[in-house]
Design a binder for these strands. Sequence first.
DNA 1: ACGAAGCCCTGCAAGC
DNA 2: TGCTTGCAGGGCTTCG
Length: 282
Amino acid sequence: MFAGVLLCGVIMPELPEVETTRRGIEPHLIGKQIKALEVRTPRLRWPVPPDLGLKLEGQPLVSVVRRAKYLLFPLDSGALMVHLGMSGSLRLIDSRVPPEKHEHVDLHLDSGMALRYTDPRRFGFWLWAEAPWETHPLLATLGPEPLSEHFTAEYLFAKSRKRRVAIKPFLMTNQVVVGVGNIYATEALFASGIDPRRSADTLTESECQRLVLNVQRILSQAIESGGTTLKDFVGGDGRPGYFQQQLLVYGRKGQPCVQCGNLLQEVQLGQRTSTFCSQCQR
DNA sequence: ACGAAGCCCTGCAAGC
DNA sequence: TGCTTGCAGGGCTTCG
């Protein structure tokens, strides 16, 4: 099965997909000037601010930054902030190519290309973050990046004390650690042999250690394999949806566990579906 | 402060 | 066949 990301025909951007998108588009944007913002569908997760184009036009792009699953395009007085929601994608395309259904926004560049945003479910957004953009309300309270030196077993252990919520929704909380969505939380807990229903404060230090390492390993592998697909961000569909990483539990309810053969079970935790092996995860 | 539930939206699949 | 219903998802917001 293709990775994580292909479900019901929709690519779900988790952190690896967002990072792959960042790497795919950045080289084509650096040094280019923004000519115009064309918003065909302002009604996204939040409405696109009517004056967003004014903030962007004429500005040179210097980098593309990822924080959690947010993509930031820093400019002089702030940053363009884009979130892909659960069905969004970005790609570079000739400005003259007519937009199709669900292609809601174009960022036109002086190179004749446009950064085109596609999002069937419109859970994503385009917003403006005033400088310094790190203090924007959506960014200010975020926990550490999972692949940074700040996400350690010691940190997770301390953070989870006295927290009685199940470990899976806890791990998916952005104030704890960012960028760990349902798919990767499910896989990391399986790889760590931890029952997703367990209260967060019952995890031992060594279990926190395993969990941190597995989150980092699984995310890193997904980013690595996404790196081979960068060409598809120009002209193609912009969807890094075919990581080679295998999903061992996610979406496999009722199928045998790859480790013990026990049938995988499903449970609802924090409004999200969790698949797990009751034999291997304790 | 914490935890649970609600909400936004569309495409797909299952059930009638 | 064509409807209706349910579900999936991130993450902010609201409620208890």
